[in-house]
């Protein structure tokens, strides 16, 4: 009720008066707003180049418009299906194997009794997030390369069979998903732990009195409390569904896994920055973003239909 009142009051205030009254809040909003205006909305201007035969020397205003030619060219090229399938494969694996991991980990961390131990664990599992992909990739090469990788040799000596992980079509998806899991599972727990911190302790007490054990408490108190967070995370994740991680994949690509490993992101890099075909690259990037937008909207609708709270 109080909330509603406040809302009504502020709704009556004119913008200038509200600015005066809450100027400090607006000030705090400013950096974030600027970030979005400059780096997100501002750069959308460049999408025009997707419909042009963009010449670097002529600029956005001077280049000739060609309509949907680049999109048509891309959809007709035989790269399209390969890239699409490869990207989908990685994205689906990411949702199935990586997405639940931070949820499980944060549930486990939540069950820890010792506060000290808990914060040490949290600190330690955040660290891989700060390791750059270049470093991860070179460590992986050291461990798994076919000639003298540490783990390759261990398996070789122990079982007498040689394994090939880096140059193998069949292990590529596992390699990429595994790297992602190792690097980001800890970082992903932050949001879920924040959600868990907000769970009313009275609920647990009530559940205990009703005779619920730890497992039942998790199942009937913790998880329902986390559900909105999980769903919002899932919706937001959908927006990045086709963003498969550019650096990571570029660093893992080689001749033997390119057929399953080349994705939209690496192809855009190659086409736009290496070959300098800006328009074509922009068209592909734009296609990817549109798919992302459609996914967010659809999943959000489904979530709302199912009676959950969406992102908007």
């Amino acid at each position: 009720m109080i909330k509603n009142k406040a809302k009504n009051n502020s709704g009556k205030l004119s913008f200038s008066r509200s600015l005066k009254k809450y100027w400090i809040l607006y000030l705090m909003m400013l950096p974030g707003l600027l970030y979005f205006i400059v780096f997100k909305y501002g750069s959308m201007f460049g999408l025009i180049t997707a419909f042009q035969e963009f010449r670097l020397t002529k600029g956005v205003l001077g280049s000739q418009f060609v309509g949907f030619e680049h999109f048509a060219k891309f959809f007709q090229s035989n790269k399209f299906s390969t890239l699409f399938i490869n990207t989908m494969r990685l994205a689906v694996c990411n949702i199935i194997f990586f997405f639940p991991l931070p949820i499980i980990i944060s549930l486990l961390i939540n069950e820890l009794k010792s506060k000290r131990y808990k914060s040490v664990i949290q600190g330690v599992i955040y660290i891989p997030h700060f390791v750059s992909w270049v470093v991860v990739a070179s460590v992986v090469v050291e461990l798994f390369n076919t000639q003298d990788g540490a783990i390759t040799q261990m398996i070789n000596k122990a079982f007498g069979t040689s394994v090939n992980i880096l140059s193998n079509e069949n292990t590529f998806v596992g390699l990429i998903t595994g790297e992602q899991m190792w690097k980001e599972f800890g970082w992903g727990t932050i949001i879920f732990l924040a959600a868990l911190a907000g769970v009313d302790t009275q609920l647990y007490e009530a559940a205990k009195i009703d005779g619920a054990n730890r497992w039942k408490q998790t199942l009937h108190v913790t998880l329902p409390a986390m559900k909105p967070t999980i769903i919002i995370q899932l919706i937001l994740r959908m927006g990045n569904f086709l963003n498969t991680g550019f650096e990571q994949i570029l660093l893992a690509l080689n001749s033997s896994n390119r057929s399953v490993g080349e994705v939209f992101d690496t192809y855009v890099y190659q086409v736009a920055l290496q070959n300098g075909k800006i328009s074509y690259g922009t068209a592909i990037g734009m296609f990817k973003s549109v798919v992302g937008l459609i996914l967010v909207v659809t999943v959000n609708k489904i979530a709302k239909k199912a009676g959950e709270e969406g992102v908007y």
Binding site: K3, G32, H129, W187, I190, I191, A194, A195, G198, P228, T229, I232, L236, E309
Partner: peptide, 20 residues
Amino acid sequence: MKKKLLATLLSASLCIGIVS
């Protein structure tokens, strides 16, 4: 309750944005 949750969530993700 739910609004509050969304707020914590968004502020948490903002933090992540800043740190990353």
